[in-house]
Design a protein around this nucleic acid. Sequence first.
DNA 1: CTGAAAGCGCTAACAA
DNA 2: TTGTTAGCGCTTTCAG
Lengths: 329, 329
Amino acid sequence: MNITEFANIAGVSVSAVSRYFNNGYLADDKRDRIKAALDKTGYAPSYSARTVRTKVTKLVGVILPKLSSESISRVTEGISEVLEEEGFELLLVNTANDSNREISSLDLFRQNRVDGVILLASVFTDLHRSLLNKMRIPVVIVGQQFKGFNCVCHNDFGAAYAMTKLMLDKGAKNPAFIGVNTEDAAAGRDRKLGFEKAVNEAGFAVDQKMCEIAKFNMDSGYEKAKKMFSGRKKPDCLFCATDTIAAGAMLFCRENGIRIPEDLMIGSVGDSRMGRVLYVPLSSVHLHYKTAGREGANMLLSAMKNGSDVHRIMQLEYDLIERESTNRK
Amino acid sequence: MNITEFANIAGVSVSAVSRYFNNGYLADDKRDRIKAALDKTGYAPSYSARTVRTKVTKLVGVILPKLSSESISRVTEGISEVLEEEGFELLLVNTANDSNREISSLDLFRQNRVDGVILLASVFTDLHRSLLNKMRIPVVIVGQQFKGFNCVCHNDFGAAYAMTKLMLDKGAKNPAFIGVNTEDAAAGRDRKLGFEKAVNEAGFAVDQKMCEIAKFNMDSGYEKAKKMFSGRKKPDCLFCATDTIAAGAMLFCRENGIRIPEDLMIGSVGDSRMGRVLYVPLSSVHLHYKTAGREGANMLLSAMKNGSDVHRIMQLEYDLIERESTNRK
DNA sequence: CTGAAAGCGCTAACAA
DNA sequence: TTGTTAGCGCTTTCAG
């Protein structure tokens, strides 16, 4: 059924029906007639026909590298809270860490499907840049800093620095590191740099043999810890780029009689729920993921409203959370 | 820019442009001309204008009670894998466990916004039923069984039964239970019933004083465990409806010198990643969340294709995972 | 294979 | 306040 047919049934004009749905001028009796006809027929107007006219989709595209990650889902939750309050809905694309999918969904979103885009990605290339420059709708990047675009990000450098310094201040002498791909500027590069700065400031040189790169999962953390402890030199403190990696490393320690924190302190970044209940409660750095999502959404909302060309960067600070895993006397 | 304007620039007719994007008959030279003009102008056709004509949105609405839950995000991941492969995108609504939001988004989806709906909800009411009956597009419910509709669900009853039986077979005599709201037919009611059946079969009566109802979080599990252990009678095995609740209960045990599994066995349902790395590795029942998402998506796809009125119910089985927390000799 | 033209269902300008 | 009507940008029939 279309608006004309429905208007006939209700005994009013099409404009009356349109005004009913768009809060225009309308006499009360017509309003009642429409309401009654609505109950009877179950008519609902077509969103896309409206969009053709108004050019407004009330949709925001959200591009994610994966769904089942605590940090990412917290960001998404923040995004959805703010956006749904403003009457927007989320068009979600899960790229499964596939860069091609990122590119192709960005391209899809150019097809007038959405009013704005929020992009969470780990690695940014020149291709990203050129495509982002072609976008005719506002875009906000969350979790990374990418020059020339709106960003909401964390202080990954500071977080890693603070955690490493905490362990070194407790007297560790042989710091080790398990990070992630440094092409990821936030979780990869910046956290590594923060680690290195703390090590250097404490008067040590960074031993690259004590630095491993893991995947974003527990098994990989386990394997890298195993590799690290197979050498002659044993670390006495370990910084991990994520809680998940730290949990894997802990699993290895537990199986091999390495005591935490006595033999090895462990600290990481993320402050996931899991950290509290690990067999040794994990010291971590809390990043404000949900807030990042909310702020990203707010930034997008104002960009969609004002169409401003000036890009903004917002960096969120962190909180150091000390638990048992670094509690060496 | 619209299709007419673009067709002029490319020096072809509008039909040619339309055919270019819809794989229709088209001479090669025109195809080349269009490709060149595309590179030059960055033109992208309007999705909504197409939808007005074709009535196809290539969108599936997904209604979730929350985002930051491991089980839900695994389901969503399964859904998105299958749907994106078929060229569909997800319109996501996070209802934040608010039943009104469930209702209103279902209503929104009636407005020709999507081609189909996947609904994850915990509590189903008559209002749900009447609204679901009004939907003119296919709907699949995942994670619950709701008579008269397409469902993909888990064997929650069997899962709870198996876990409880495991602990009773190991010699437990005083079984306790921390569940969730029984209005939730799957995680609430069925898991409680499964627990009760196992207890009864072992020749015990269910002591309702040893049964608590918690929220879906760790703190609540902690509080309920505390309450349970404040009474005279102490349980020697505890079934929890979710891993998160079990983790909270474990936290309480650890703080209060209750040994697991010697003094208290603990088992739950969900098999989340966290369970493996708890201070006592947690026995749990694996439910195939991602598969449920995939199967739900497949069911929806075939309903959208065939428009069949017959509703189907698919129940997925479980895997019992024994770990240290129930390993009493 | 191709182009002209008639809609798809709606909104909004305009005249009343 | 109201109803009429001209589009919004696209697809698809139909006649070539």
